[in-house]
Write a protein that binds this DNA or RNA. Structure first.
Length: 269
DNA sequence: AGTCACCTGATT
DNA sequence: AATCAGGTGACT
């Protein structure tokens, strides 16, 4: 569920609450969350301090005082936040870290698709080496975008979801960016018209940057579900509703087993 | 490059 | 009862 902006908000909020917190103990309710690692391995985290949380694409890294790092992926329904006491944890808390000040870091995940692993610097290199450019970094230029899309004829919408091409875009913001740039989602990625490159680059950055700001502002309560901001979403989950530009009913199609929303008039396929 | 599996809960 | 969900990795 969370895409780059929501993960970014989780990390920023986490740092405000738990930077330099020390882990007292770990409780793993669902061993699947740490598989193929074993719950016993997590005893290595007792009495280590979390130096800081950082984000790369949709990945969260918690750097620890013992030189190791916790690698967390929220997948579809994960969330990570701090509560004042472990007894306040929700039913869907799959793993939690009790802190030495008695607070607790909750990894909540209704569908239990999320993952938490203990990783080394070499592991982190492996993970990051498989990720494309960060779309909000200055290094992400229209030229870089063009290179990312040049090596596949797949429709551009599923190509935008490929984390090796551009890191952090998910199903909502892929549809949103293509609508903003008025690009049919079926366009072969390597055949994007030259005059659409800059509009797409601008749209990706604007959509994500706007969502980063609003996702962070939206989180006032720790346990709130992570939802992409619905206000301001132009096409996602709006099938049949009028296009905000031309009032044509928004259409839905399935690409690579995921819903794509688009305006049949602004983005004719 | 396309299909499926991993899970649970909400909606139809 | 069946379908759908904002993600990814392991298959064919």
């Amino acid at each position: 569920m969370p895409e780059l902006p929501e993960v970014d908000a989780v990390v920023r909020r986490f740092n405000q609450a738990a930077q330099n917190a020390t882990i007292h103990s770990v409780k793993i309710e669902r061993p699947g969350i740490v598989a193929p690692q074993l719950p016993a391995q997590f005893k290595a985290l007792h009495n280590t301090t979390i130096l800081a949380a950082r984000r790369r694409a949709k990945h969260i890294f918690l750097d620890l005082s013992n030189g190791l790092t916790l690698h967390i992926h929220l997948r579809m329904t994960g969330n990570l936040y701090v509560l004042p006491d472990y007894r306040f944890r929700p039913h869907s808390a799959r793993l939690w870290f009790r802190l030495t000040d008695n607070r607790v870091i909750i990894f909540e995940d209704q569908r239990a698709f999320g993952r938490i692993h203990i990783v080394t610097p070499a592991d982190i290199e492996d993970i990051e080496s498989k990720l494309g450019p960060e779309p909000l970094e200055p290094a992400f230029t229209p030229s870089v975008l063009k290179q990312s899309l040049a090596t596949t004829r797949s429709p551009i919408k599923p190509a935008l979801l490929d984390q090796a091409r551009i890191a952090g875009i998910g199903n909502i913001y892929a549809s949103e960016a293509l609508w903003h740039a008025k690009i049919p989602p079926t366009t072969p990625a390597n055949q994007l018209p030259a005059n659409k490159l800059k509009p797409l680059h601008t749209a990706i950055r604007k959509v994500l940057q706007h969502a980063v700001t609003s996702a962070y502002a939206a989180y006032t309560n720790p346990g709130d579900p992570i939802e992409s901001e619905s206000f301001g979403v132009a096409v996602y989950d709006r099938e049949g509703e009028p296009c905000l530009r031309c009032h044509t009913p928004i259409a839905r199609m399935v690409q690579a087993q995921r819903s794509t929303y688009f305006c049949p008039h602004c983005q004719p396929c």
